[in-house]
Amino acid sequence: MDLRSFEAAAWARLMEAAAGPHAGFRYVTLCTVDAAQRPQARIVVLRECDDERRMLTFHTDVRSPKWQEMAANPQVTVLGYCHERRLQLRLAGQVHCYAAGSEIARNTWRALPPHTRQTYNGGPPGEVRATAPLAGESTGPETGESRFGVVILQASSLDAYQLQRNDNQRALFRYAADGVLQASAWINP
């Protein structure tokens, strides 16, 4: 397989994940740095992928620590591994965060199904609760919308690592700010 095909296959897997809830890269790890310069990692759902512009989209609660971390330092890494394909993808780049009131957040919120919208009701992520959540507990859809944020990663690099029985393959791709491929190379696994 040549570099161009290897890169195209990696982005095709991300496109599949954004479109299908059971795809291998649907859940990926978003890595940020907190105020004390400690690395932080958590699973996020890949909601959209633009393979031409090299962008990934996630949703989050704007009260979450990761939102604050990305506001302070928009440089992040996203790591995914598909067991079925034995493929690891690591993307680095800069995020742009769109809070409630922005056109992107408003349009995205309107397209969400009710069960997804209700995940933004309730207290701030990570805070202690006095009681266990009640089934169907809700504080209203307008409250959830005010807590909803869209995160778009503009990838500056993709490190793709294909595990095989023999001859593992790994390549590094570097992108311009508009997503155009600037450089690529095979690298040692």
Rank of each mutant, 00 (worst) to 15 (best):
D178R: 03
Y81R: 00
S146A: 07
A171Y: 05
P113F: 09
A19F: 02
F58P: 10
M70L: 00
V180H: 15
A132T: 06
P65L: 07
P74R: 06
M1G: 15
P39R: 12
R26L: 01
L14N: 02
I104Y: 04
A9E: 13
L112S: 01
L163G: 14
Y98A: 06
V95P: 04
D2L: 01
E145Q: 15
A8K: 11
T119M: 03
L172H: 11
P114E: 10
H96R: 10
C97G: 07
L87A: 03
S146E: 09
S146I: 04
L181Q: 07
Y120I: 03
A41F: 04
A23D: 04
P39C: 01
H83R: 12
M15A: 15
A171G: 11
A12I: 04
P114V: 02
Y27V: 05
D2N: 15
V45H: 06
S157F: 02
Q68N: 10
Q118N: 01
C82G: 09
N73G: 14
P74N: 14
R38A: 15
E16N: 03
S5L: 09
D50S: 11
V45N: 06
N73H: 15
A99Q: 04
P21S: 13
T32H: 02
T143Y: 08
G149W: 07
A35D: 09
A8P: 15
G149M: 07
L87G: 04
G24I: 09
R165G: 13
L56M: 15
Y120G: 00
L172W: 14
S64M: 13
P113L: 06
R170I: 11
T119D: 08
A185T: 05
E48Q: 11
C97D: 00
A19H: 13
R38Q: 15
C82R: 00
L153C: 07
Q118C: 15
V78D: 08
D167N: 12
G123I: 14
Y81W: 15
E145G: 14
I104K: 07
Y27D: 07
A72V: 05
T57F: 12
G144L: 07
V150D: 11
